[in-house]
């Protein structure tokens, strides 16, 4: 067990280091900005006094490394500073939107993960059948289409031509769960389409890869029925690749979420990020990036920990 614990500790340590490095990059990005931030934000007409005042407000007069640790310290306590655009606390703006984004991603994941795994296993089982071929072509199509294309097609057919769902997902803070579910449905379906296709293809590939191993042939030659070969001999060994597939795609949801939120005007972090980028509202951009990156790093970490745990060689050392 010692080796396993060591391995886990190492991987988690690496994750923490990565997170730290990511925070440095995101912070350093601000330093890289050509010209003076204060002058850029306040414009040419700003008087030296207002510029100085602004710099002091942002702490720009301090040394970069001190500012970095101030910023990181604040971020760890949930304080991301103040928005340049409206002077409101970034954390206050972010919190409800983060909840919305999580809800959307969770809904998409709840639909797509079981769907994709089932379809992937089926496609692997019946490979080269008509089902597999149709699945291959349609998943390729859905992967290759930009999220906004799928989104608008869904709006056209499920909101405009057949008004089943609303085309704009404006969620009020006091909407009940069913209402929220209803309004989140279209963006969630869009995300599901993209992610399911990805996950299904990767699951299929992982299982087909596995079915070629000698121990699967051995199981067949022992007279083990087909379903039992899959469940007892293939799936246990496919856990690591499948965990990876799922984590990778959940991470992919993060990128997808940004576009889908814009298409459906969904009040999430992605929408906020895009708005802030066009306003060049740096504290908000940094906060959003940090949240997305942290989620991403965390999911990759979980995937690796999962594969380590599912490896019999590591669970049962010699």
């Amino acid at each position: 067990m010692n080796g396993l614990a060591m391995l886990m500790a190492k991987r988690i340590g690496l994750g923490l280091i990565t997170l730290f490095a990511v925070s440095v990059i995101i912070f350093a990005a601000l330093e890289l900005m050509p010209g003076d931030l204060a002058e850029q934000v306040l414009g040419q007409s700003a008087t030296p006094e207002t510029v100085a005042q602004f710099r002091k407000e942002l702490g720009l007069d301090k040394a970069p490394h001190i500012r970095y640790f101030d910023w990181l310290g604040g971020a760890l306590q949930g304080d991301f500073g103040v928005s340049l655009a409206n002077k409101r606390s970034v954390a206050d703006q972010l919190a409800p939107r983060f909840a919305n984004t999580l809800f959307l991603a969770a809904l998409a994941a709840a639909i797509s993960v079981p769907l994709a795994l089932t379809l992937g296993v089926l496609a692997a089982l019946y490979r080269n059948s008509i089902f597999d071929r149709v699945a291959n072509v349609s998943t390729l199509t859905s992967i290759s289409s930009p999220e906004f294309f799928l989104g608008y097609v869904l709006i056209l057919f499920l909101a405009v031509k057949n008004p089943i769902f609303p085309s704009i997902s404006n969620i009020s803070p006091n909407a009940d769960f069913m209402e929220q579910l209803y309004r989140t449905m279209l963006p969630a379906i869009t995300l599901t389409l993209v992610v399911t296709a990805h996950m299904m293809r990767m699951t299929r590939a992982a299982i087909i890869n596995l079915l070629a191993s000698p121990y699967i042939e051995m199981a067949r030659l022992k007279g083990v029925p087909r379903w039992r070969v899959i469940v007892r001999h293939a799936l246990v060994n496919a856990l690591a690749p499948i965990i990876n597939v799922v984590a990778l795609n959940l991470a992919y949801l993060i990128t997808g979420v940004v576009l889908v939120e814009v298409v459906f005007v969904y009040p999430g972090v992605g929408q906020l990020l895009v708005d802030s980028v066009s306003k060049r509202d740096l504290p908000v951009v940094q906060a959003c990036c940090l949240i997305f990156a942290a989620t991403y790093v965390l999911l990759n970490l979980l995937a690796d920990v999962g594969s380590i745990l599912s490896n019999p060689r590591l669970r049962h050392p010699r």
Partner: peptide, 20 residues
């Protein structure tokens, strides 16, 4: 490379485009 890839590409792109 691992560190650069630890930030989702689209999000990183947005960050860099804000700056430059």
């Amino acid at each position: 490379v691992d560190t650069i890839m630890a930030i989702p590409q689209l999000v990183f792109a947005l960050l860099l485009l804000t700056i430059f």
